[in-house]
Structures are given as structure tokens and as C-alpha cells.
Design a protein around this nucleic acid. Structure first.
Length: 511
RNA sequence: GGGCUGGUGGGUUAGCCUGGUAUACUUCGGGCCCUGGGAGCCUGUGACGCCAGUUCAAAUCUGGCCCAGCCCA
């Protein structure tokens, strides 16, 4: 048994740690993650494999994320709608690629009560096949385009994989946007705009830097011309597909007859897109920032942004509580901060510190008789690994707290960005790709001819695949993160087969 | 899909080999006391993953299933 593990069980038996996280993020990422999710009260496992129960704290994270994205969607022309969870088999069958792509993981409803249905109904694995037919009905003229619909819903994909809350579940919450356009350019602009919004969500809200790219041909969404992705690198070296946006060309429009009359009175076929982001983003959020003390959240999604912990003695209790109450009220009213005053009588301060750290509150404010006397508050940032205590002046409280919350975001982002930048490496030999991924994880970029067989060579050996290809020639996604020039990949021959390279491939192990 | 490890009150866990009374800590409820990093005392509630089998008797043995974590495809 490894040392760290023995420590974990020893401290558990001594009754010191069992409320908090006992697993090590570095040494035992899987169990650590499961523990953080459960002990921070984000989710529980459901009785059936592959399903989870999202608890209020977890759902609140989703709601905040949702509010950001939904606002941007609406600002850019998308409107929310809702389509049935069940899709008739005959609808699903109309687009051949969708059938082929999702058939193995579709859940079917075959009975209503005791009656067997005449036509079985698919529980949606994605909704193109029910939404596009309606876009067809609603699209008459070029004046109806672009048509942009979005729905927030859950889908079911019956994969036989291990459950990992938010990362891998048979049912997951997501949004799926569906649009139709008069021109291919219009559709492509849409695809990139939505990808940009996903990138913005990760970078500006979740404090996670991402790489933008497209998926290789063989890994595209079924029926799509192009699938784009934002990829986030987790601390254990695996890549997460954080959101995807697809150019569907005209294949869906043809299959479901989305046509319109243009200015010249010609009947034309529309171009469609779809784009989705799931609660996997929450998985990436939890995995990226949290530590061995528990959850760590950036302020924008934290249910409580500030927790105020009063520390009193019998003779100071009234003063301390009054001061703490005023501080909390001021932050809430003047500062528009989500603040919680933890005035529980039966818990000592140390217990509260640990508990709120476990729950990921970005900023803790301690108020005892000393603070009251000096007219200050003591603040500790969750993102500060040194646990440094800072005095904030009472008279500048709102601004100071605001600064501290910004700093939490900056610290979280900087750490995640460092992880990303340090873990994009180049390789020019197959053994080098495999060796680098085996040793460090992360992304390894290398020239590639575009042939799936060449990916397979790597995949078989180290279970790493092509996570993405930079979107345009010469565009190196990590340059944005580094704020400078991208590192050039040497050579223009495919590293695996030696044929002419057409792409730069980013290999990684993936979630 | 294959293999490994595990599943005992809400959480952590002892007991299992060698069948018979289920251990402790903690959380939670009540009471007292206490408050600058998981304090203390009293008290109460609360569990053997599921289904079969063996047996006078199963948490314990056997078989099947379910669930989780890990490794491989």
C-alpha cells in the first residue's frame, strides 16, 4: 500500500478527516473526484448505474453556468424552445448517419402502460431528428432565415461506461442549439460564434483556458461536415471536450426538407448547424480547480461568494455578531455579493473554516473582537494555497472584497493556464508521442496525414487519440494562452507514416 | 466487453479466515458548556448492497445479480 493511502486511512480512523476529503488529487484522482463531488454535496449516485442525482448545490452551479450562456445566446439571436423527449423511430431513421452514429446507445420506449406501441420511440440522444423537421415547416422564405433555436434539456446515451458524475453519465443535462441559414457562410459563422461563446464561458466564467480546434474526419458528429471543439486539459493530463459546435452542411436540411424560397423565387436548401454544451463543464470545473481540501469555485458560479465567520467570546459575542451582520449586509446590498453569515452557535470557527473550504467558497471573512476593535475584517482566499490572512479596511470593504474575488479568479485561471501551457509538447517520432504521453500526459502535437489508421497506431499503444486539430493552418491555439508566438512543429511529413502531412494533430488521453 | 479490488447506521470503520450478542469514531436530534483551524460532557436516533442456497442458526460459507473504484480492450 502506498504511503499516501496509508495516511489517508490512518487519519480516517483517528476520526480527524472523515468529514473532509481523504483522497489525494495527485495520487488517486478518480476516487478523489468522487469524494469531492459527494462531500461537497454536489451529487449522489442514483440506484441505477450511469445515473446521478444532482443536489441543490450542484444544480446551482449548473444554473449559474446556464444563465451566462443563455444570456449570450439570446443576445445573438437564439430563442429557447422545447421539443419532446421521445422521438418516433421513423423520424430518427430519416438521416442515415444519425441512425448509424447513435443506434448503439439509444434507449427505446416500447410500451405505454400495458400496450405495446405501434412504433417504438427513442429517448432523444440528441434532437436534430425532431427539431429539423419543424424547422422545415417553419421555414418558407429567405426572410425566415437564419432560424435559431435552442433547448435546455437532458438526453440519454446508453453507453456501457463507468459512471463519473458530470463527466460520464447515461443521462446528462445540456443545451442543444439548432440553426438554419440561407448560405454556407452564414452557417459557418454561426458555428464559430457558438464555439466562441463556449470558449468565453470556460475562460471568463469557469477560469479554465481551452484550446479551440476541430475534430478529425472520423470523429465528427454523425452527418456533420465539420465538428469543432473546445478542449480543456485536466490536471491529470487528460483532455476534456468542453463543448462542440457542428457545421451540418446540407445533409440534415436535405433529409428533413429544410428549404426556402430566395429573393429570385428559387427554391433552395438551407444549411444547418447544431451546438451543445453539457454539464461535463461542471466536471471540468470541479476537476480543474479543486484540491485536497475539497471543492474550489471561481466567484462567478459559487453559490456563496463570501462566507463570514464570526469568532466571539461570551463578553464579545454581541459586538462581534452585530459587526459581522453589518459587514454581511453591506456586502450583500452595496456590493451585490452573495454572502453567507455563518453564525451557528454549536460549531467553533475551525470547523466552519474547514466546512466552507470543502464547499468551495471563494472568500472567507473572519470577524472577532480584534477586527471589531480595529475596524477591519480578516480575509482568506480559497485559491491561496498559503492560506494567507489579509486585513481589509472596513471603510473600503466592498471594493476590497471585489478585488479579492477578482484575485481568486486570476489565481485559478493562472494555475490552470500554467498547467495547459506546460503540457503542450511536440513530437516527431511515433515513439516520442507515446513516450511523452505516457510520461507527462497532456497534449502532444505532431504532423499528421489525415488518415485514421495513423491515429490508430498511437491509440492502440497508449490509449491516446487526436483530441483536436487547430482550426486553420498556422493557427496554434495555445498561442492565445501563451500570449505569444506558437511553437512550430518541425517537418511536413506525417509522423506515423511519412506521407505528406496535411494537419497538425493534438494527441491526448481523453475523458 | 475482459480482469482486479471493494460494498456493514448519513460519513469513516471493526467483526468475516474459524457461522450464534454487530465495534468504535463522527455526523444528525435534544440538553449543558464552549468559540482565533474540525473542543468537551450527558443523552437519543440510526446499518450488514440485492436474490437464492447450505445450516438449528448467515454480516460471516456457496452461487447469481446490482453498484462503485482501478487496470486492460
Amino acid at each position: 500500500m502506498a504511503l499516501w493511502s496509508r495516511w489517508a486511512s490512518v487519519s480516517a480512523m483517528s476520526g480527524e478527516q472523515e468529514l473532509g476529503v481523504t483522497e489525494s488529487k495527485n495520487h488517486n484522482t478518480g476516487e478523489w473526484y468522487a469524494e469531492v463531488v459527494q462531500k461537497a454535496k454536489l451529487a449522489d449516485y442514483a440506484p441505477m448505474g450511469g445515473f446521478i442525482v444532482t443536489r441543490p448545490r450542484g444544480y446551482e452551479l449548473w444554473e449559474r453556468l446556464q444563465n451566462h450562456l443563455d444570456g449570450w445566446f439570446k443576445e445573438t439571436g437564439a430563442r429557447n424552445a422545447y421539443f419532446p423527449v421521445l422521438i418516433p423511430e421513423s423520424f430518427l431513421e430519416r438521416e442515415a448517419d444519425i441512425v448509424e452514429g447513435f443506434d448503439p446507445e439509444v434507449a427505446w420506449v416500447t410500451h405505454g402502460g400495458y400496450e405495446e406501441l405501434e412504433e417504438r420511440l427513442a429517448v432523444r440522444p440528441t434532437s436534430e431528428s425532431i427539431i429539423t423537421p419543424f424547422m422545415s415547416e417553419w421555414t418558407r422564405s429567405h426572410r425566415d432565415l437564419p432560424m435559431r433555436l435552442n433547448q435546455w434539456c437532458s438526453v440519454i446515451r446508453w453507453e456501457a461506461t463507468e459512471t463519473k458524475p458530470f463527466f460520464r453519465t447515461k443521462e446528462f443535462l445540456w443545451q442543444e442549439g439548432h440553426t438554419a441559414h440561407a448560405t454556407e457562410d452564414g452557417a459557418l459563422d454561426e458555428v464559430m460564434m457558438r464555439l466562441g461563446q463556449y470558449e468565453r464561458l470556460y475562460e471568463d466564467v469557469l477560469a479554465i483556458p481551452v484550446l479551440r480546434g476541430k475534430k478529425p474526419e472520423h470523429d465528427k458528429f454523425p452527418g456533420a461536415d465539420m465538428t469543432t471543439t473546445v478542449e480543456a486539459l485536466m490536471p491529470d493530463g487528460k483532455s476534456v471536450q468542453g463543448g462542440t459546435s457542428h457545421a451540418l452542411g446540407q445533409s440534415f436540411a436535405e433529409a428533413y426538407d429544410v428549404t426556402y424560397t430566395d429573393e429570385d423565387e428559387e427554391e433552395r436548401t438551407a444549411w444547418t448547424t447544431s451546438w451543445g454544451l453539457s454539464w461535463r463543464a461542471l466536471g471540468a470545473l470541479i476537476m480543474t480547480h479543486s484540491d485536497d481540501q475539497g471543492l474550489v469555485l471561481p466567484p462567478a458560479v459559487a453559490p456563496e461568494q463570501v462566507v463570514v465567520v464570526p469568532i466571539w467570546q461570551e463578553d464579545t459575542k454581541d459586538d462581534v455578531l452585530q459587526y459581522a451582520t453589518e459587514v454581511a449586509a453591506e456586502l450583500e446590498d452595496a456590493g451585490d455579493v452573495r454572502v453567507h453569515l455563518d453564525d451557528r452557535d454549536q460549531r467553533n470557527p475551525g470547523f466552519k473554516f474547514n466546512e466552507w473550504e470543502l464547499k468551495g467558497v471563494p472568500l472567507r471573512i473572519e470577524i472577532g473582537p480584534n477586527e471589531v476593535e480595529d475596524e477591519v475584517v480578516t480575509a482568506v482566499r480559497r485559491s491561496d494555497n498559503e492560506n494567507t490572512k489579509r486585513e481589509l479596511d472596513r471603510t473600503e470593504l466592498v471594493d476590497e472584497v471585489d478585488d479579492q474575488l477578482d484575485t481568486v479568479f486570476d489565481e485559478l485561471y493562472a494555475k490552470a493556464a500554467e498547467n495547459l501551457v506546460e503540457n503542450v509538447r511536440t513530437a516527431n517520432e511515433p515513439t516520442e508521442i507515446m513516450g511523452t504521453i505516457g510520461q507527462h500526459g497532456g497534449f502532444v502535437k505532431t504532423p499528421w496525414c489525415g488518415d485514421e489508421a495513423c491515429e490508430e497506431v498511437i491509440k492502440e499503444k497508449v490509449a491516446a487519440e487526436i483530441a483536436m486539430l487547430p482550426l486553420e493552418d498556422g493557427e496554434a491555439p495555445e498561442a492565445a494562452v501563451e500570449g505569444g508566438e506558437a511553437v512550430e512543429v518541425e517537418g511536413d511529413e506525417c509522423t506515423m507514416c511519412g506521407e505528406d502531412a496535411t494537419e497538425v494533430a493534438y494527441f491526448a488521453k481523453t475523458y
